Every structure is written in C-alpha cells, then in structure tokens.
Simulated assay, not measured.
Amino acid sequence: MHALLYRSRARPGLLASDLNDIIATAQAHNPTIGVTGLLLYGELSAIPGAPGEFVQWIEGPEDAVEALYARIENDPRHSEPSVLARGPVAELQKGSGLRLVSDRLFSSWSMGLVRLSELPATRSGFLGFAREWDEESLPAAA
C-alpha cells in the first residue's frame, strides 16, 4: 500500500462550498480507485484574507495515488503543492506509534476533512496529529 503526504496553499477566496465540493468529489471517486485518506485544512485567523493551506494524506495502490496527486497538482483550488513524503504506508508510519488498520492509516475514510488552526505540515507533525487523533477515536467514517 502506497501513501503520499503533501501540502499546498488554497487559492485566495476559497469558500466552504469549495471544500464541500472537494470532499464530495473525493468520497464519490476515491472508492472506485481504492484510495482512502485524510484532508486537513487551516486558515491563519490572525491574518484576515490570507489563503488557507491543505495537508493531505492519500493512500492506496501506487498508480492510483500518484494519478490522483497529479490531478490535485492541476486543480486551480490548490497552489504551490509540495510532497512531504511518499512511499509504502508501513514505512512512512514507522516510529509514529500509529496502529495500522489492515495496511492503511485511514481504511474507513474515502476522504475525511478536518479543519485546523495550525496545520501539522511536516511528516512527523502529521503522523503525531494522526496518532493523537487515532487515540481519541474520532468518528469512524466520513
């Protein structure tokens, strides 16, 4: 099982309806290609009008994950995408304390959305967030 973790800047003026569209599209499309994951979105409340940022973990068959990321790179709702990590899920999560469900971190999520004020925009930051999130047993599926 392959995973890719990236961050990107949201286009200025991104609306809640845009986020809803991203999730609705992912939830409809991702199960058909065997992809699961988690999308984090955050805005800097101290700077009104500043663009928000995304951090996303995508997991599934390598060809599907890489093709999906190529689509994201060309999505006008994203700018400045940057890969933080990519490779086998089991390798990327080593040392994080996360419990793998099957061979995925987010096996029951076609794509979940979490809004945060501070994004864990590094591999270790994301895995630390995911570990705490996993331990708190948040809703099972989105």
Rank of each mutant, 00 (worst) to 15 (best):
D18I: 09
N74Q: 15
I33L: 04
D75Y: 11
D63V: 06
V89T: 10
A121D: 14
R77K: 13
L119F: 04
I47Q: 14
F106Y: 06
A3C: 12
P120V: 03
I47M: 07
L44D: 15
D63I: 08
P51D: 08
I58Q: 07
L19I: 09
A85E: 03
S102M: 06
F129I: 12
A67I: 00
S117D: 15
M1W: 00
G49Y: 08
R71V: 13
H78N: 13
S110P: 15
R71S: 14
G42Y: 03
P76A: 14
S117E: 15
W57V: 03
G13V: 05
W109Y: 11
L127W: 15
S110Q: 07
R86D: 01
P81I: 01
A67V: 08
H78W: 08
A10Q: 03
S108P: 00
L92M: 13
Q56K: 02
E91L: 08
G37N: 10
L38E: 04
G95E: 12
D18Q: 06
E80L: 07
S17M: 10
P12H: 05
S107M: 00
V89D: 02
D134R: 12
F129E: 07
L116S: 01
I58T: 11
S102Y: 00
R7M: 07
N30D: 05
D75H: 10
G87A: 04
V35E: 01
G128I: 08
I58G: 06
L127Y: 12
W133Q: 12
A70M: 07
T32C: 01
E118W: 04
S102D: 09
S108V: 01
W57C: 02
L40A: 09
R86W: 00
E132N: 14
T32M: 06
L4S: 10
D134C: 06
R9H: 10
L39S: 13
P76Q: 12
G97H: 09
P48K: 11
L100Q: 03
R99L: 12
